[in-house]
Structure formats: C-alpha cells, structure tokens
Simulated assay, not measured.
Amino acid sequence: MKIYIKYMVSQRCKMMVRDEIDRLGLRYTIIELGFVELPDDITQQQHDELKKNLYHSGLELLDDKRSILIEKIKNVITEMIHYTDVLPKTNYSEYISEKLNYDYTYLANAFSEVKGITIQQFIILNKVEKVKELLLYDELNLTEIAYKLHYSSVGHLSNQFKKVTGLSPSFYKKLKQKRNSNLENV
C-alpha cells in the first residue's frame, strides 16, 4: 500500500514520517520523498491518526489522484535538482515524463492548473534555490555552479537569479557574508 504525503521534501521530513509510522506500530518497506510504501493495508483509525500526527508536523496525507500526481511532479523535480549530483542530460520534460510514465503535455497542464505556475517556472525556482545554497557553501564559483546546473552561461544563470530574487548572485553572496560577520560580532 502506498501513502502519498504532501510537503515531504527533505531528509528531515523522511525521519519525521518514519517516527510517526513507528509510533503507530506500522511496518514500512520504503520511505521516499512524497510517499511511504507499507506491506500491509492500514485501518481507517490508523490512517486518521497518521493524518492528524503528520498534519501537526506540517505534512499532509494526499487522498485524491490529482493532488498525488502534482506532488509526484514536485518530488521528481526536487529530487532531480537538490538530491542528485548530476542533472539529467535529456531535457527536463522528457525526464519528468519518463519518470512518471505520463505524457508531458498532460503533466504540464495538470500542474499549471493546480499550482498556477508552469513546470518550467517551478524548475527555475528550484534551480535558483540550489544556486543560493551553493553560493552559501562557497565551494564552487559561479562558472562551476552554472555548469553543474546546466545553465548555458553565467550570464543566463545571473539573469534568472536576478529575475527571481531581485539580486545578482554576487550581491546575494555579499549580503550573506555581511550578515554572518555581523552575527559573529554580536
């Protein structure tokens, strides 16, 4: 039995879900971003208890097929950008379509209808978040970050970053460095 969970986007979320599953005395075979696979069916009481407990942790059980599909799309994108070292060589539409076994046009229309933004816009937002993270780690320069995230150039990365955040990547990095030095002086 698969249970789909909204807002489950990090390792910490997976740990919270594992704790709740254990607390209810349920067995699981897989806990991944966005879902848990259980070897057995659960009772309505267990379902309701899990739903209530996850809700208090900021997570939600998904019951309708459309919401589940949207979460699957979001999780594929999140995993692709944030949790893999190398982005796929194919274009994103092919990758997402292949991963979910749906026609990309269908996925794109459903996503836009529910989320109010396109899949491409969601990918850009996630890539910008990854750029922020990599800038803060200060292990890669902007050219290396652009290459790692498949931007055609540093200029392209900078333009998208500024469009989303209102700041240039270098200014963003300076702000964070200044904030950190101010915190050290407190």
Results as ranks from 00 to 15, higher is better:
residue 175 L to M: 14
residue 19 D to H: 11
residue 23 R to M: 11
residue 31 I to F: 05
residue 27 R to D: 12
residue 65 K to I: 10
residue 49 E to Y: 07
residue 60 E to N: 13
residue 119 I to Y: 03
residue 78 T to H: 15
residue 98 E to M: 13
residue 4 Y to I: 01
residue 127 K to S: 02
residue 146 A to M: 04
residue 146 A to P: 00
residue 114 V to R: 15
residue 65 K to D: 13
residue 36 V to E: 00
residue 97 S to L: 01
residue 37 E to R: 09
residue 150 H to Y: 07
residue 32 E to T: 02
residue 62 L to T: 03
residue 20 E to R: 10
residue 74 K to C: 02
residue 41 D to I: 09
residue 120 Q to I: 12
residue 79 E to I: 08
residue 48 D to Y: 08
residue 156 H to P: 00
residue 161 F to W: 05
residue 116 G to Q: 02
residue 144 E to D: 10
residue 155 G to P: 02
residue 160 Q to M: 10
residue 86 V to D: 12
residue 15 M to R: 13
residue 142 L to I: 15
residue 68 I to K: 02
residue 149 L to A: 05
residue 14 K to A: 09
residue 112 S to A: 13
residue 150 H to V: 06
residue 34 G to A: 06
residue 19 D to C: 08
residue 61 L to E: 02
residue 173 K to P: 01
residue 164 V to Y: 02
residue 99 K to M: 12
residue 129 E to R: 13
residue 11 Q to T: 11
residue 29 T to D: 11
residue 56 H to Y: 14
residue 135 L to D: 04
residue 168 S to F: 07
residue 80 M to G: 05
residue 96 I to M: 02
residue 176 K to S: 14
residue 114 V to T: 14
residue 175 L to I: 14
residue 72 K to M: 12
residue 142 L to G: 03
residue 101 N to M: 12
residue 53 N to H: 15
residue 161 F to A: 00
residue 107 L to Q: 00
residue 101 N to I: 07
residue 41 D to S: 13
residue 7 Y to A: 10
residue 32 E to R: 14
residue 17 V to T: 03
residue 54 L to V: 01
residue 145 I to G: 05
residue 43 T to Y: 03
residue 184 E to W: 12
residue 37 E to P: 04
residue 127 K to Y: 07
residue 48 D to G: 08
residue 122 F to M: 09
residue 20 E to K: 15
residue 23 R to G: 08
residue 141 N to R: 08
residue 65 K to Q: 13
residue 159 N to I: 11
residue 166 G to V: 04
residue 6 K to I: 02
residue 159 N to K: 15
residue 49 E to P: 01
residue 62 L to A: 03
residue 120 Q to M: 11
residue 13 C to D: 15
residue 58 G to C: 02
residue 144 E to V: 02
residue 150 H to S: 12
residue 51 K to I: 04
residue 186 V to E: 14
residue 133 E to M: 13
residue 38 L to F: 03
residue 72 K to G: 01
residue 93 S to Y: 08
residue 173 K to Q: 10
residue 162 K to A: 00
residue 62 L to N: 03
residue 121 Q to Y: 09
residue 155 G to A: 00
residue 12 R to M: 10
